[in-house]
Simulated scan of single mutants.
Amino acid sequence: MKRKNLIKTHLAATTVATITIVMFFSVSLVAELHGDEELIISVKTGIFRFLPLLLFSMPALAISGNKLAAASDNVLVKQKKQRMKIVMVNGIVLVTLAVFLYYRANYQSVDQVFMYAQIAELCFGLFNLILIGMNIYSGLKLSGRMGQLA
């Protein structure tokens, strides 16, 4: 794949993944703060249904990012790679929690166990958003869109 197309793929995957994660986080937080069980069940069902979008965009993001980085010795590239390893592990935890919360909300109950899992999901999600934001910032610096490297 040509570098130009690889960059477009990476940007598209980054955009889709980031927007999806932000939406998952936001609607979960709103539902929990609102406290309406029906809303919580709807949100968990919606997240479960849109999970495949994330399951396609994140690997596309990682694969295209790795190809763009190749064997770079750039410090920012190395930092991005390190952060992506953490994002990947957190992502596995988040997918597991999303499935668990969907199942719990729809087939069991929105109880204390659900709430602890929801708190964990929000914490892992916020941490991933921070790491992804840092990677986006580093990517913009690498592309020259954020000025000179410090």
Score class of each variant (00 low, 15 high):
71 A>Y: 02
83 R>N: 14
48 F>H: 14
56 F>Q: 03
95 V>S: 02
57 S>W: 03
54 L>C: 04
70 A>I: 01
40 I>A: 01
73 D>H: 11
90 N>I: 09
67 K>E: 13
55 L>W: 00
47 I>A: 01
89 V>D: 04
98 A>P: 07
91 G>K: 03
101 L>V: 10
52 P>V: 03
67 K>T: 06
90 N>A: 13
67 K>W: 08
100 F>E: 10
52 P>W: 10
63 I>E: 05
54 L>K: 00
40 I>H: 04
95 V>W: 01
94 L>D: 00
49 R>Y: 14
73 D>L: 11
87 V>P: 03
54 L>E: 08
61 L>M: 15
68 L>W: 11
96 T>E: 03
46 G>A: 14
74 N>S: 15
77 V>T: 10
62 A>R: 14
95 V>R: 00
81 K>D: 06
69 A>Q: 00
57 S>V: 03
96 T>C: 12
52 P>R: 05
93 V>L: 09
72 S>Y: 07
96 T>H: 02
45 T>M: 05
83 R>P: 01
94 L>I: 03
83 R>H: 12
87 V>C: 08
100 F>R: 06
42 S>A: 12
55 L>M: 14
71 A>T: 12
70 A>D: 14
92 I>P: 08
55 L>G: 11
39 L>D: 03
49 R>A: 13
58 M>Q: 12
59 P>Y: 08
43 V>M: 08
64 S>E: 04
57 S>Y: 06
49 R>G: 00
74 N>M: 11
58 M>R: 06
68 L>E: 06
41 I>T: 11
82 Q>D: 15
73 D>F: 05
92 I>E: 00
46 G>H: 05
61 L>E: 10
75 V>L: 15
70 A>R: 13
62 A>S: 07
62 A>T: 13
51 L>A: 13
66 N>F: 08
94 L>E: 07
98 A>C: 12
52 P>H: 12
